[in-house]
Write a protein that binds this DNA or RNA. Structure first.
Lengths: 188, 188
DNA sequence: TGGGCAAGTTCAATATCCTAAACACTGAGT
DNA sequence: ACTCAGTGTTTAGGATATTGAACTTGCCCA
């Protein structure tokens, strides 16, 4: 692909605006940022895609923080709605875990759509990181074992437990089972 | 300079954290971001300095906004104090304009230290963009003409006017004149 | 035990950026 | 007119990122 130079949005224009607002010439800024004036010229003209390191050094020379520089982005990607096929598939084997909303960095919980095929069994997960989780059965039946308790749940039934307890999910009955669940925190 | 790979701070570590928090593998994210898995691998390992375009595409694939990704930076460069020699020199000729604080993008005013050498004269600036400006004389004497009014100001004297009015500053007396002034808005 | 699969990593080749030096232009001062 | 110092721009070449494919590892399951 040729250098479209449009993938950066108006990065160059913004840099120019910021630099001029600071009353700096390209060379003056280049000296502070320890890059060359041509680098700045080409970036502002949209002829190149600067590396993150180069842009950071330049912005530090103004100085403007990276987050400020990108703060007022058009923000094209604040996804709120997700088509079914966009859901991130995590699981494997007979258990399919689909993450609702590709949880962004820093989210405080993760929502999953879990599908247990006929005969699917998570096996006994001994104990995991500190978290809580709960869910509701949408269709089918699943046998849930948490600690010493065990119960078969059908559509409309729900569960909620501390995930440090050993737990196991096993599909039962003639049809696959779908569960919507949530847990917190997502990874840590 | 060899590839230090440390200029990016912990960019790679952060990307890995963000990606894993989203539950995506390198290849899964690469597919969404339309880059290759090796690109992500090398970035996360700190072996390369990604281009802004590459990083943006990757973050869009998660999705995370650039500003969010850099939001919790150590913010090393929130400059508040400035050594005398750091002040940005703007003026030319007998008039030296030093910008206090290299006004960041979006600042709502600009503060200047103006030095008028012996005989310095700004000439009559007809009318400029909509703004207001004011200042205080620190040392020396300066004749200020604004519209039809004219006055010679000495140490401690001050002025304030709408800068759309034609105005002129002219050093008078045996010593150079130093003025601290402010104007708003800075550029626009 | 071995196959299959998905994970992250590495390597050579290509595409791209960054630098250094020169170019063109402007305004101010001899 | 000429130089000088300041703008921003352009160009060639070495440095670096990105690609595409191979490599390694670990895991599950037959």
């Amino acid at each position: 692909m040729p250098n479209t130079a449009s993938n950066d949005f108006e990065l160059g224009q913004r840099l120019r605006a910021v630099r001029e607002a600071a009353g700096l010439s390209q060379r003056a800024l280049a000296k502070r940022a320890e890059v060359t004036n041509s680098t700045i010229s080409q970036i502002e003209a949209g002829k190149v895609n600067p590396s993150v390191a180069a842009l950071k050094r330049i912005l530090d020379g103004i100085p403007v923080a990276m987050s400020d520089f990108f703060a007022f982005e058009p923000e094209p990607e604040k996804k709120i709605f997700y088509a079914a096929e966009e859901l991130t598939e995590i699981g494997k084997g007979g258990v399919s875990l689909k993450q609702i909303g590709t949880n962004l960095y820093g989210r405080s919980m993760m929502i999953l759509q879990e599908t247990y095929e006929i005969g699917a069994d998570t096996g006994r997960k001994p104990y995991e990181h500190e978290a809580e989780e709960g869910g509701v059965v949408i269709s089918g039946r699943v046998e849930v074992t948490v600690g010493t308790q065990r119960k078969i749940l059908g559509p409309g039934d729900a569960y909620y437990f501390d995930s440090r307890q050993p737990h196991r999910f096993r599909q039962v009955g003639p049809e696959k089972c779908v569960v919507i669940s949530a847990c917190t925190p997502p990874t840590f």
